[in-house]
Design a protein around this nucleic acid. Sequence first.
DNA 1: AATTGGCACTCGAAGAGGTAGAGTGCTAAT
DNA 2: ATTAGCACTCTACCTCTTCGAGTGCCAATT
Lengths: 350, 350
Amino acid sequence: MSLDNRKKQVLQAIVDDYVSTSEPVGSKSLIERHNFSVSSATLRNEMAELEKLGLIEKPHTSAGRIPSDKGYREYVNSLMRMDVLSDKDMEEIKTGISDSVNQITDLIRNAANTLSKTTGYVSLALTPKLTKSYLTQLKMMMIEPGKALVVVVLSAGVVKDKIVRIPNFLTNEQIYQISNEVEKSLCGKPLDEITLITVSSAVKDTPLPDSLLNQILYEAYVTIKQADKLDVYLEGEHKLLALPEFKEMNRAKDLLGTLADDGMVAGYVRELSSNNPDDKNNQYMIRIGQEITLEGLEECSFITTTYNVGDVLSGNIGIIGPKRMEYSKVISQVDFVRKTLNDEIKKLTE
Amino acid sequence: MSLDNRKKQVLQAIVDDYVSTSEPVGSKSLIERHNFSVSSATLRNEMAELEKLGLIEKPHTSAGRIPSDKGYREYVNSLMRMDVLSDKDMEEIKTGISDSVNQITDLIRNAANTLSKTTGYVSLALTPKLTKSYLTQLKMMMIEPGKALVVVVLSAGVVKDKIVRIPNFLTNEQIYQISNEVEKSLCGKPLDEITLITVSSAVKDTPLPDSLLNQILYEAYVTIKQADKLDVYLEGEHKLLALPEFKEMNRAKDLLGTLADDGMVAGYVRELSSNNPDDKNNQYMIRIGQEITLEGLEECSFITTTYNVGDVLSGNIGIIGPKRMEYSKVISQVDFVRKTLNDEIKKLTE
DNA sequence: AATTGGCACTCGAAGAGGTAGAGTGCTAAT
DNA sequence: ATTAGCACTCTACCTCTTCGAGTGCCAATT
């Protein structure tokens, strides 16, 4: 799409005005606010052409224009200029993320929290998918006769535990031995290569009958696999209710209904990021309006990005806001949150 | 408050009608729906007296009556008759709660989930406060030089872990030794009796300089204390948007804004349950309308109850719905969820 | 004394007009 | 190519009216 210079200016002005007022913008008010050196009639002609190109549209015959999804897309791709965050914003984000942190998940949660606070929109963060991380330790210990604790430590510094039932008569030593053998043979294996069969074959020369052993190993296996579950942090849903686009209750209901299923939203974002055309430079990803295939989010945009944990793992973080949003500002905020999060994770894990 | 028989019937009929229609109920429609053997004029007189008693009120002069908070209270305390859950409901709750469970927290989350689904309202569940539980195991193990994993096991079957930094030169054996000593001296102590001083005094005769030791012990202490944090599960907020009482966006916004701070809601419920006059028989607790001191919840009611983990620990579970709700039905649902949850927790932990 | 029929009155919900204002597209002039 | 001018179009908002469900009170009845 290549527009002549003035058309670009007009489109940009329309998007800017509409974003700040949420009212359709007409030729006259466009003249008033921006200093175009042409008359409103000329702008009307330009606007008619922009409409023909599908970049803007009228809610009804005698109303001003609003950007279409395509218009926003054009704006985002080639019109907007990047925002520079204020020192205050940066400070706020930094302190927000590093506030009372014990584990990586605290950082991620804090990042989501901060992002929702500074943007005023819904924030979304996914913990990294751990299939690529490898097992570094696996310990089983007796808690009381018949119960044992399995602790799994992964390369990313992630720890998962589970209390499992074991046959009553097993001794501490036996458990210890089994645990050692399993650990020895699985250590260093990526999570997605560990199957029930790999676990079982780890223990060949134990004096225990197979049936018992299998029970224990199954539990160990489940514990390992449990580590693979992603957590989702979704915050600030209620903030969307304040926006004029959701003043009709039904829209708001649909929107919040969809967002309530955080697993679904997470799945969508993860899919986006896995086959993502935008993200060549490991930058942000943007989806606008109808580009989003979730129900009730037709008036929204996603801005998401990727953060890293160690060398191989990555998670997603970003926001869901109205498509009528200050893209440049929000993008810089998301970007800065990502940088800060990356730094803090590095600090915490090394 | 002692009402004559007919007044009771009238109040009950008004509550029932208003709950099902959400429209103010007038004398005429009251006659139509229920078979009172008096005329509408008589009912009008009765209603005027009920209004004088503060049990019902008019939204405006020429409208029907709606129950006041006091009216609902009277209804709940002495008018309503208990509901019997259908087999289908019970089945649904049972399978909902015991679905794919690994830990106690899974049960609690499932219970919250199920409760929101069957009631159609917001559900709330708090994990038990663990201050009364005692430490059963504490293990520290080296992950790599400079990093150790601390695992704390509590009596309730709760496990918490944390990766901590340790001085680089510490050996596996040293860590093991410290961990053993701390464990030996803290084992069996309730969480709220463990302070930084108790932790420190546990290790007297180690050949390590105090400053190092203190660092490690501090981390152990933090890990233990971290176990004391409550988790909150709050689900189904968006369902309230469908109710007529929240069709005005501002109310809905206030409501969801308050509910977004789940820590605050949790604190409120916990306080309720700790100095709770209702709960003599360890039954449910009900708060109606203005009795609730949280902003934006004036049109809501809480119905909460207590579930048990082991002998000493207890958590809370319940719902937040409109005060115009089918109390009898919802109470039985909450009660059945509590019973089922108790059973399942017992099954899981013994 | 309690109940009832009747009646005047009240108030909100809902629909019907009417107007103002911000927009548009088109045409003819520059 | 641009612009001034004009007729036209729609919505948002206001007012007015009507309708109906409801009330309170009074006088008659049981």
